[in-house]
Simulated scan of single mutants.
Amino acid sequence: MKLNSISRLSKIAAALATGLLLHGTAFAKYPDKPITMYVAFAAGATTDLTARALAQGAEKILGVPIAVENKAGGGATVANGLLASKKPDGYTLLVTSTGSITVRPLLMKLAYKPQDFQVLMQFSYYIGGLVVPADSPWKTVDDFVAHAKKNPGMTYASSGPNTQQQIGVESFARCKGLTFKHVPTKGGSSANTALLGKHVDFIAGSGSHIPLVQQGAFRELVTFHVDARDPKRPDIPVMKDIGCPPTNPPNGMIVVAPAGLPSDIADKLTATFKTVSETPEFKALLDKYNLDYAYEDGKSVQSKFPAEIEWYTKYFKDAGVMK
């Protein structure tokens, strides 16, 4: 080999080595500036409150501020689409639901697909139910069904069309031969407000309704998405107790990043959020909103995506929403 060729190769190798060194150094310094965490639902909802608690705990570990921004709308599609457009550098994250990633693309053309995201971890899941004002005449689910049969078109609010909560109500309606009018909102807290103001007859609760049940403002008549009654609220029936098949499986509450996040940054963020989620303070917050602690790592969560997509595909075809 000629001397000048050897010289050129040496320079290339040196440049590559320098690049790799700088690359590794940049990762080692992560994070060195503030992080933005989007929340896919409205302020005051369970997703928002838990996301803010995760962010506050993670700030202490990572040593940089984490700004939480609510980007509600479209059943989480607004926030999801926004995150999918960002660089996978660890400085833009999102707390959202598994269903908004797996299910929404089945129904509409969106700015993202499931492969555009890297799940870092799951910390809980959404459990919904049919919720009425505490001063309503419906003391039991049987009372409610009897009234709904005589008064088709009762109105209800949920966190959005074809969300887990809305599908829970429609599954209930199909089982009991009822028809309702859906009023979509931007999140669970907005649905709560609609019910408090008596703008709707009932809501598809998403978890943020629990404190209002405990305070005596709301009454939950039936719980969706689970097969067994909640030991903390054993008086509330589940679908099988009222002769109905299970509704859709619960959606996970997850922290995600854009796909392509470097593995060392992903590992650092996952470990950080896992540490925060395991604290007594965070688990007490989940308990306050009747949310179960359900940690899973990102790979485990994403491995379930195909089964979730299959369930909803069948549901939408049976319901005539998809061909």
Score class of each variant (00 low, 15 high):
95 V>A: 06
87 K>Q: 14
100 S>P: 04
96 T>G: 07
113 K>C: 02
132 V>M: 01
116 D>P: 03
128 G>S: 14
122 Q>V: 08
138 W>I: 05
91 Y>A: 07
83 L>P: 03
121 M>P: 02
129 G>Q: 04
93 L>A: 09
100 S>M: 01
127 I>A: 03
136 S>H: 09
139 K>N: 13
120 L>F: 11
140 T>L: 10
119 V>M: 09
132 V>Q: 01
128 G>N: 05
133 P>A: 09
98 T>N: 04
78 V>S: 01
138 W>E: 04
124 S>Q: 03
101 I>Y: 07
111 A>G: 15
85 S>N: 04
83 L>D: 05
132 V>P: 00
98 T>C: 09
79 A>G: 12
128 G>I: 05
108 M>A: 15
104 R>C: 06
144 F>Y: 13
127 I>L: 11
121 M>E: 10
120 L>I: 12
122 Q>N: 09
75 G>S: 13
94 L>V: 09
75 G>H: 06
93 L>C: 08
126 Y>C: 02
130 L>W: 06
86 K>G: 00
110 L>D: 08
126 Y>I: 10
91 Y>K: 05
105 P>R: 07
133 P>R: 12
97 S>E: 03
144 F>N: 01
103 V>C: 05
96 T>A: 07
121 M>S: 06
118 Q>M: 08
88 P>Q: 02
78 V>I: 14
124 S>G: 11
139 K>Q: 15
131 V>P: 01
78 V>G: 01
117 F>V: 00
121 M>H: 05
137 P>V: 13
142 D>R: 07
147 H>Y: 15
89 D>K: 07
110 L>W: 12
93 L>T: 07
96 T>R: 02
99 G>V: 05
99 G>T: 11
122 Q>S: 13
